[in-house]
Structures are given as structure tokens and as C-alpha cells.
């Protein structure tokens, strides 16, 4: 037992000592050559891309964005790009929990709508991409990965919908927090219609991103980026419970509704012609 353990430890010591010694040898050959020529030059090329965006953080809504884009690289460092896509969105469990409990909260008869409840669906944006940084990583010692780091900015239009978690126009079961036509009280999925106040609109959207594009040969690339979709919020304040439960419009628009940010981690693939 002890002998075997010693053997294992001896092997470990050898394995650790080898790279250490190698590193010591390498100390003498550190040199000043730190760059090679740009291997990939996207300038003048057209490229198409697809991507999926996942939410970094969810409060009351969650978005999963699917995008396709086309870009033209005017220079190696500058491109114009158009993107369009669809965001699959939903209410989070927290929003559902609030909606169910608030139906029975009789002590709150005047309130404001919650912020940041708009859900983005179809959207299209156009923007510019500036990639001032070109570099490479050493992967597994022998495999270089060339990349560009970029910032992206642009704007466009998006379609939005908003389902209230406060205003239920037809309370089915106040104690259980039911505001839809479900056939079984325990089965939310059996509902074909709900009675929450909903709205929709088309509004301007601004998008900004920072990211990396890793080149794979001349034509392929993998894109990792952090993207923020920004649009103006819009909700009503001073809502009267009696009015909304009677199906009447109530309240007034908030004067300073602020902006809604949807921050996504985007993973994409690009193909350059």
C-alpha cells in the first residue's frame, strides 16, 4: 500500500517537475517577437451569420433571441450589419407567482403596473461593427486561435407585447389566483384564454454589443458577444382595482417610464464569402 502510494507520488512529482524544468529552460529564450501578420482579413467580404441569445439575468420576463444577419466588411476593422430575428419570450416563475398572489391581496386596491414587463418578439436592427483589436490566443500550446474583438451599435424596430400580472379583468378564483379559463385548477396548461390585460406595440429599439469573433479558416467564424437590447418602457400608474376588475381602463401612463434593457449572451456562427 505504502509502496504503491509512493510510486504514485513519485510519478506525480516527475510530472510536475517536467514542465517546471521546461519552463526554466524556456526562460532563456524569451524573445521580443510577439506578433505575426494578420492572417485573416475580412475587409471587402460579405458575411452571413446566425446566432442565439440567452438571457444573462431574468426578472419578470425571459427572452431567447434567434437572429440571422448579413454584414459587409468595408474594411478589416469596420463593417455594416443588419440583423433580424425573433425573440421567444415568457413570464418568469416570479411573475406568475406575483400574479397569483396579488389577486387575493385586498389591502392593495390602488397600485402601479410593474416595470419592464414588455416582451420583445420580432425585431430588426442595422448597425455598424468596429473591430479595432485583432489578436490570437495560444490554445493547447500548438493551436493558435485568431480573433477580432469588436463593439457593435445600431438601432431598428421591434414588436412588443405586454401581459399584466396585476390587472385581471375577470377573476375566476381569487383564492387560487386563477385568471384564465383552465379546465382544471391545478393545470395551467389547460387554459386556452386568459383575462390579464394585454397590450402590444411596435417601437424603436437600440442595440449595442461587445464581443469576439474567432476565425476558423478563411470563411468560418464563431461569435461570442454580450448584447443589450434597449427600448423605452411604457406602463400605467394609479390603477384602481375596482375599475380593472370591472373591465374598465384605469390609471394614466407613467411620466418617466425609463428604459428596459435585455442583456443577452449571444453565441453565433458567421460565414464569409
Amino acid at each position: 500500500m505504502i509502496a504503491r502510494t509512493l510510486c504514485v507520488f513519485a510519478s506525480l512529482a516527475v510530472s510536475l517537475a517536467a514542465p517546471v524544468a521546461a519552463a526554466q529552460d524556456d526562460e532563456n529564450v524569451l524573445d521580443n517577437v510577439v506578433v505575426r501578420n494578420r492572417l485573416y482579413a475580412p475587409g471587402g467580404k460579405l458575411e452571413v451569420s446566425i446566432g442565439v441569445g440567452l438571457p444573462l439575468q431574468t426578472h419578470l420576463t425571459a427572452h431567447y433571441v434567434f437572429n440571422a444577419g448579413v454584414a459587409y466588411n468595408l474594411f478589416n476593422t469596420f463593417a455594416v450589419e443588419a440583423r433580424a430575428g425573433y425573440a421567444a419570450s415568457r413570464h418568469t416563475g416570479l411573475a406568475r407567482s406575483i400574479s397569483e398572489s396579488f389577486l387575493n391581496r385586498e389591502d392593495k386596491r390602488v397600485t402601479d403596473e410593474l416595470e419592464d414587463l414588455w416582451q420583445m418578439n420580432l425585431h430588426g436592427v442595422a448597425g455598424v461593427r468596429w473591430a479595432p483589436i485583432y489578436g490570437k490566443l495560444s490554445l493547447l500550446s500548438d493551436l493558435p486561435a485568431h480573433f477580432q474583438a469588436y463593439v457593435w451599435g445600431g438601432g431598428g424596430l421591434g414588436s412588443f407585447k405586454r401581459n399584466s400580472v396585476i390587472q385581471c379583468t375577470q377573476v375566476v378564483n381569487r383564492d387560487l389566483g386563477i385568471c384564465d379559463n383552465r379546465t382544471s385548477v391545478d393545470d395551467r396548461g389547460s387554459a386556452t384564454q386568459d383575462f390579464w390585460v394585454n397590450e402590444s406595440r411596435v417601437a424603436p429599439v437600440v442595440s449595442a454589443a461587445v464581443g469576439f469573433r474567432f476565425f476558423i479558416r478563411d470563411t468560418h467564424g464563431v461569435r461570442l458577444e454580450l448584447r443589450d437590447w434597449v427600448f423605452r418602457d411604457n406602463y400605467r400608474v394609479n390603477l384602481m382595482r375596482d375599475a380593472w376588475e370591472a373591465g374598465q381602463a384605469t390609471g394614466e401612463p407613467a411620466r418617466s417610464p425609463g428604459l428596459t434593457h435585455l442583456v443577452q449572451f449571444d453565441l453565433g456562427y458567421t460565414f464569409s464569402f
Binding site: 510577439v34 506578433v35 494578420r38 476593422t77 483589436i133 485583432y134 489578436g135 490570437k136 495560444s138 490554445l139
Partner: peptide, 12 residues
Amino acid sequence: LYGKFAFLNNSL
């Protein structure tokens, strides 16, 4: 991982 980059093809 380690790497290097050039900013605007100039600064390394």
C-alpha cells in the same frame, strides 16, 4: 491561455 493583439494594427 495567453495571446496577443494589435490595436488598430499598431499597438501591440
